[in-house]
Design a protein around this nucleic acid. Structure first.
Lengths: 339, 339
DNA sequence: GTGGTTGATGGGAGCGTTCCCACCGCTCAC
DNA sequence: GTGAGCGGTGGGAACGCTCCCATCAACCAC
């Protein structure tokens, strides 16, 4: 060892040891063409012997790519990490990025209080693209990020006005599926427990419900619509309200947690599921399998959503400036005991 | 604009616009001394006008610091994101790093299948330090990371053999607190539902239990010790087993979820809490507030744990090669209805 | 007046890559 | 025999920044 132990070996040293030029060594590392087998082997061996690891900064400086993608979580973090849905999305993002040899930079928007710092960070100088995970419609963050000219993909559309660069579950189709199933079972009074209307998952699942009801030639009755906040307690309460409103023989709930609440309320009211009232949820969350009876629900794949988000953002980095078409992920019904 | 719109302005351009040299401009940006007010203002204005953002790669190349800290999650991700404890730790890490102007790089160890790739990444070439979150004792990852000479801090000690560079909740002390409380209440037959012995939280909370029992001059009875897997169902089952084993008037559970299960089993057995059997949990998870009765439990702060991990790893980056003393976070008892 | 000190400044050198171009030695067609 | 073409190669230049050193003006003490 002639050089100080502290500093890691450079490409130059690898090349020297392999008895080739810097250019050739670089070509070997980056899988370039036009390298003789002899040179390739020599370089490979030198790399192993020296324990060479390419310097990311130097590479980024010249290629103008950082190979890093930021995941911005705008939601309050308790929420995000608590919900299995988000956990799934993050898992999907993580594995897709790993496959593409990109790094995942997690930005908790709440944590970085200084909004200026956030803006400065989400720049080409730092990341190749940005993924945004948010529930609410009102956020102005997307616009700010886009203004920097960084590719951005939103998971769960943040505001209906944007029709590109997003990935979302097809909530409308899923809800329709659920309601059609209930109608197909011969149910006459299909109610819904909808989510908050300021969240996409809230209003679009309601939209699907209304669509399906209308398509069946039945008018949507006011008394058959209740609202919750996606929490279990709110589902319980909403169910009680629906029962108080008149005859109900089926309920489509905008998520599984509210459906679990509804099941409880039905039990307390002495009604049998699915005999008296059929229940369908949305999400296919873990809880759907542990309710009694197990919940019939609309299955969505958060993991796939994460993977798709990555696919879209990587596509966007390849064609800068070109908006990528949004992607709607299909859902399907999982029939269990409750309907 | 004389230069192409695509490329962002460089420091050189900022300097030129401000009518100063590159060095002076750099000094202004990095809050250096010895800059006249006049120069500072001129540079500041130029930065604003041009929308200048420093290039991270170029900076990292010369400073040899990336200002990025990797958080490696070795656990299966479902687990990590599901548990509120981990969510809290991550939140703490996120905010502490943001305050220190460091970036959080999330590495899901499961996702990056190629273990070689992981190793290569966790190098000074890429990150300044590594945080490792894991539950199990057997992992050989820490050794591999340390071999690269990168500062590493483990959250929740991965193996008792390491006595430095870790941050953990003082499980032993917490458990002792809980048991002392029960004994102080005059309970004679204090049982425990312990966690898996291959997890630190499992065996060290049991250790605290045994300590406190022994300190009270009572022998630890075999029949008063049951084991669960930290899940609610296992707590229920364990409680039933304890009841079948003889007189019990108090139970210390290694976590709140198992305590919730125990409460259920006690209810089914027709026993009153806390009158007949007092119950104490560990964790102070959200569920502790929603059980009936609300759970008396040992409070720990995952968020603080995250913040401490950051503090330790940053300290380690400042004194490379020097092992940092491990930190044990104190806990305290939160008395609610169950004991 | 002289020499030393101090605040402020400009710019060269260098960080470790990739990109690109010049170049080398062969082979093959004419 | 000559020139074009091609696989393979070496190394200069550039990426955008920080570090450091030389320099300068202003000021003070003697």
């Amino acid at each position: 060892m002639t050089r100080p132990l502290r500093s890691r070996p450079t490409l130059e040293e690898v090349a020297a040891r392999a008895g080739v030029g810097r250019g050739t060594a670089s070509r070997v590392i980056n899988g370039g063409e036009k390298v003789s087998e002899r040179a390739r082997l020599a370089v490979q061996q030198a790399i192993d012997e020296l324990g060479y690891v390419p310097n990311a900064a130097a590479r980024a400086l010249v290629t103008r790519r950082t190979d890093a993608i930021a995941l911005v979580i705008a939601e309050s973090e308790e929420r995000v990490f608590g919900e299995p849905f988000f956990a799934g999305v993050i898992r999907g993002i993580g594995s897709a990025l790993a496959e593409a040899d990109r790094q995942l930079i997690l930005v908790l928007a709440q944590a970085s209080r200084r909004r200026g710092a956030l803006d400065e960070y989400l720049t080409r100088q730092h990341v190749d693209g940005v993924l945004l995970l948010s529930l609410h419609d009102d956020d102005e963050l997307p616009a700010r990020i886009r203004a920097h000219g960084v590719p951005l993909v939103v998971g769960g559309r943040a505001g209906a006005e944007v029709d590109h660069d997003f990935v979302d579950v097809d909530n409308v189709q899923g809800a329709r599926l659920a309601v059609e199933h209930l109608l197909g079972l011969g149910r006459r009074h299909v109610a819904t427990i909808a989510g908050p209307s300021d969240m996409v998952a809230g209003h679009s699942r309601y939209e699907g419900y209304a669509d399906a009801i209308a398509a069946a030639g039945v008018p949507v009755e006011e008394r058959l619509v209740a609202r919750g906040d996606f929490g279990q307690a709110s589902g319980e309460e909403a169910m009680r309200a629906l029962l108080a409103g008149g005859a109900v023989d089926a309920v489509f709930c905008a998520n599984d947690l509210m459906a679990a609440g509804a099941l409880r309320a039905l039990g307390e009211a002495g009604l049998k599921v699915p005999e008296d009232v059929a229940v369908v949820g949305f999400e296919d969350a873990p809880i759907a399998q542990s309710t009694t009876p197990p919940l019939t629900t609309v299955h969505q794949s958060p993991e796939q959503m994460g993977r798709e988000m990555v696919a879209v953002v990587l596509a966007a980095t390849r064609e800068p400036g070109t908006p990528q078409p949004g992607r709607m992920l299909p859902t399907h019904l999982v029939v269990r005991g409750s309907a």
